[in-house]
Amino acid sequence: MGNERFDRDRLAAEAIELAGSDDFGAPTWQEGLDVLLDGLANEAQLSDLGVEVAAMGVTDYLTTRLGITAYRAAHPEVAEGPVDHPIFIVGQPRTGTTILYDLLALDPALRAPLTWEVDKPCPPPETDTRDTDPRIDEVDAILSMADALMPGFTTFHPMGARLAQECVRITGGDFRSMIFPVQYRVPTYNRWLLHDADMAPAYRWHRQFLQHLQARDPAPQWLLKSPAHLWHLDALAAEYPDAVIVQTHRDPLKVITSVSALSAHLRKMASDDVDLTEIAGEYAEDIFDGLDRGMDARARGVVPPERIVDVHFQAFIADPIETVREIYVALGRDLDDLTAQRMRDFLAANPGDGGGGGSRYRFADTGLDAGALRARAERYQDHFGVATEALV
């Protein structure tokens, strides 16, 4: 059943029927999808439910791609929409990127793509109904079902239709996205993505997606976020040469521990055979690869230093508003009192766990060698002055 469910032509036909159009735009989506489908069929060890979840997810991405392409063809002026000086929050998972993103998204001078807009972007959001669009409730209902399938997931990662969404959910439409190896055991796809894939098409699709979202609701300045950008700063800068980068920093061993637990939790929704130590071993390699690539890209001036802001996790957790204020100074922006109060109110309503994770995950569960990893982390920690944290 699994193999035939992951037939590319079958999934494309389902999407065409749902979208009512058959133009997927540039054929760049096919390469990554073929590698992904092979992994889902032969590596992911999916349950019967997981097969359906994964297949429906692929169909959703394809349907969205068809819808955006059709709207763009009918409204060619969308392709002229500017995406100037976008701000990208990058940095490894569990380094404060999500809460920082949520806070900055409260600034009316910035616009982040919201979850409901990314999940159901067709037709484009309208300025007058952006807060009342019926798709908001639809997406919240879907997210509630996901939380029922994955009890406790929102303690790892908050979900909500009105919360800002990550770029991996956008680049998923070109099937060049870290969202897939986080959700499923697809090591061949992961290797292709990190070491062989041309990421230029993913960022071209990313721009098209933003142009679509701003077609009827202009964006003053886009605010975007994903840890995945750190692996691909060259491709990001090639598509957005005027981008501003905000990079968060934290002890890589804490990052590996947390993201391994997050991926294990996610994969359990689609598989009954999830191995935390296997996942941790993969991330121990990938996380350091991303840090090395980020340092190399910055050393080469891929993004000019004056357009990069570094944020230390420890300082951010100790005083979020002051850290945001410092970011604004570095960006040449003013943090007005009303926006600062919005941010304080959000923090009061969403206290989080300070990135600690409590009893949800422990380094001891990863099966990794702390000493070897600490030596591997030394170059990065010394370069950016990143504090070492105690491991549980």
Rank of each mutant, 00 (worst) to 15 (best):
L110S: 13
P151R: 07
P124L: 09
V118Y: 04
T127R: 15
R130L: 10
A161C: 05
D119C: 09
T155A: 15
D107G: 11
A148Q: 05
R135P: 08
L149F: 00
K120H: 02
L149S: 03
A109C: 08
R130M: 12
A112N: 06
A105F: 03
P125M: 05
D102I: 00
L110Q: 13
L163N: 02
E117H: 07
P124K: 06
L149P: 00
I136Q: 07
F156T: 02
M159V: 08
R162K: 14
D107T: 11
P151N: 03
R130V: 15
V139P: 09
L100Q: 09
V118N: 03
M145L: 04
P151S: 06
C122Q: 03
C122K: 00
A141E: 14
D107N: 11
C122G: 02
P158Y: 01
T115H: 10
M145S: 01
L114F: 13
E126A: 14
L149A: 12
D147F: 03
M150W: 00
P125V: 09
P151D: 01
R162M: 15
D147R: 12
D102Y: 04
P125I: 06
A148N: 02
A148Y: 02
T115E: 12
A146F: 07
D137S: 14
T115Q: 12
L100G: 01
D107E: 10
W116K: 04
T154P: 03
T129S: 15
M159Q: 07
D128A: 15
